[in-house]
Write a protein that binds this DNA or RNA. Structure first.
Lengths: 151, 151
DNA sequence: GCACTCCCGACCAAGCAGGTCAGGAAAGTC
DNA sequence: GACTTTCCTGACCTGCTTGGTCGGGAGTGC
């Protein structure tokens, strides 16, 4: 139940792309802006490219840009692109597991966990993120002081 | 963003303990009931014991039992006992990360993710689980058909 | 004393995390 | 055509995690 550095980096780099006005942005600029190791970031951007989230051009004046408008790219997509499916249990999707005996209803719990994560990540777009116009589901949760305490 | 086999096993074993009427339950019985490799399960139960969630006695008539009533043990506790803190980012708690530039508000998103997971896992007790009396937050989410589709 | 059951450290194979390195291949500039 | 720039890609690396297994030790009950 953790978020990898890769996923965090991927979203941060994508946010920079979403905020870029015109034309391709160099990998180095993204790395500098978000303090990410350049060569590691290049691998991440390559994955995002393979998943059709960003596009790239080489050479002078080359760089990366979003394949779609920033308000059509959700955080969930980016996380999936680099981390794979969200909230799998034992590397299989929760709806595919058979629980028996007294743990029969554990399946519904894992399903609910996945759904609640999706409720957040699928409703935040890169445009929301850079404009600081996060959806209510996020601001409501973040407004509760208890959400900020470690446990 | 995945649930480990260990966490899944731990909750399933704990559910069996919650359902056991009286006296200690042998590790072997738990392993059989939930189809968990016995020796692996023993390590998991040991961790649960160290975290004060279960108790154990050795020898004939020995076994494991819950340290507290089943309605006072949440799934969140069990997951934390074997997996550590929920929804850390880059191995640090989201409230401790400093985001700059265009990813400034990513922190609130990760905080919201953590809060929404907690909303589920901290509100389901072992008693709820074995009695099939899951709280509304779970049943509401599990009632949406879309929650069950892979993505 | 003996069977039973938990306790616990050592080990293991595979994979992932979080990178680094070295070179190749397109694109633009002169 | 040469040269620079920038992305593309595979190989490699260290250390840790996952999901276990093995073997023996130590309480407990009869």
């Amino acid at each position: 139940m953790r978020v990898s550095a890769k996923a965090d980096y991927a979203v941060r780099a994508a946010a920079e792309l979403a905020a870029a006005d015109e034309g391709p942005v160099k990998g180095e600029k993204l790395a500098d802006a978000q303090d990410i190791p350049l060569q590691f970031l290049e691998h991440i951007l390559l994955e995002l490219k393979h998943q059709g989230i960003v596009r790239a051009r080489r050479g002078a004046k080359g760089g990366y840009w979003l394949a779609r408008p920033a308000d059509e790219v959700t955080i969930a997509e980016i996380v999936r692109a680099v981390e794979g499916p969200i909230a799998h249990v034992q590397s299989t999707p929760p709806e595919a597991i058979e629980y028996r005996g007294n743990s029969e209803h554990l399946q519904e719990v894992w399903i609910a966990v996945r759904a609640s994560i999706r409720n957040v990540l699928e409703n935040v777009t890169l445009a929301d993120l850079v404009a600081d116009e996060l959806p209510d589901v996020v601001t409501d949760l973040a407004a509760v002081p208890d959400s900020w305490v470690a446990r």
